[in-house]
């Protein structure tokens, strides 16, 4: 493997043994690999520097526990994949508050919805499987362009689908009201 030259087990072992120069060399060589990887996954964005930094921190901190120096690649890969997951999870929490015209998002906790818990399954069942998939991926933390890649579509088509999902859920709500069903509460919580 190509990586065995740059990240040979001798270098890893030296770094694990406390050789600061070896450790510095190791992290220095990892940096461009991580940069190329993260840019490939999320594009050239400010988040890339954070992802690299945090992944290097993970590698640095976990190096001492790495039992087999040959497994550095696996270790670095998992660290990078973990970081991406953390990025997705944290992505909308702050931004949405800034972008949302209605201010901070609802927490949907029973306490804050007047004691009525939103019935997710019921609300989502009003949607087509594809629309449901999009909404779930969106709430998982993916951008629309990423969702488009994931389900083989275009960003514009995804947004259109979300627009239709909104209209469908809205109409479903109206029909429930017309029918006098208390299920309205399950959809809207209030």
């Amino acid at each position: 493997m190509a990586g065995s030259d740059a990240f040979g087990s001798a270098l890893v072992s030296q770094a694990q043994a406390g050789d600061e120069r070896a450790r510095a060399t190791l992290l220095e060589r990892l940096e461009p690999v991580l940069r190329a990887f993260f840019i490939k996954r999320i594009g050239v964005r400010p988040d890339v520097d954070d992802l690299i930094q945090n992944t290097l921190v993970r590698v640095h901190n976990g190096l001492v526990d790495l039992k087999d120096p040959e497994r550095l690649k696996a270790f670095a890969m998992k660290a990078a994949l973990f970081e991406l997951q953390d990025l997705y999870r944290g992505r909308y929490s702050a931004k949405e508050r800034l972008y949302d015209p209605f201010g901070p998002p609802e927490s949907a906790s029973p306490e804050e919805t007047g004691g009525v818990r939103v019935d997710v399954e019921r609300a989502l069942s009003a949607l087509s499987p594809r629309a449901r998939r999009i909404i779930e991926l969106r709430e998982y933390g993916y951008r629309y362009e990423e969702i488009a890649q994931m389900i083989g579509s275009t960003e514009a088509a995804i947004k259109m689908q979300v627009k239709r999902a909104f209209a469908k859920m809205r109409n479903a709500l109206v029909s429930l009201v017309a029918g006098g069903l208390t299920a309205l509460l399950l959809l809207g919580g209030g």
């Binding site: 999870r89 949302d100 949907a108 939103v118 997710v120 998982y140 959809l187």
Partner: peptide, 19 residues
């Protein structure tokens, strides 16, 4: 506005369910 508020609650609930 009312429909949008409910939409946001559903989305937030999806997020919470995923978490």
């Amino acid at each position: 506005a009312e429909a949008y508020a409910r939409w946001r609650r559903v989305r937030a609930a999806v997020r919470r369910s995923l978490d």
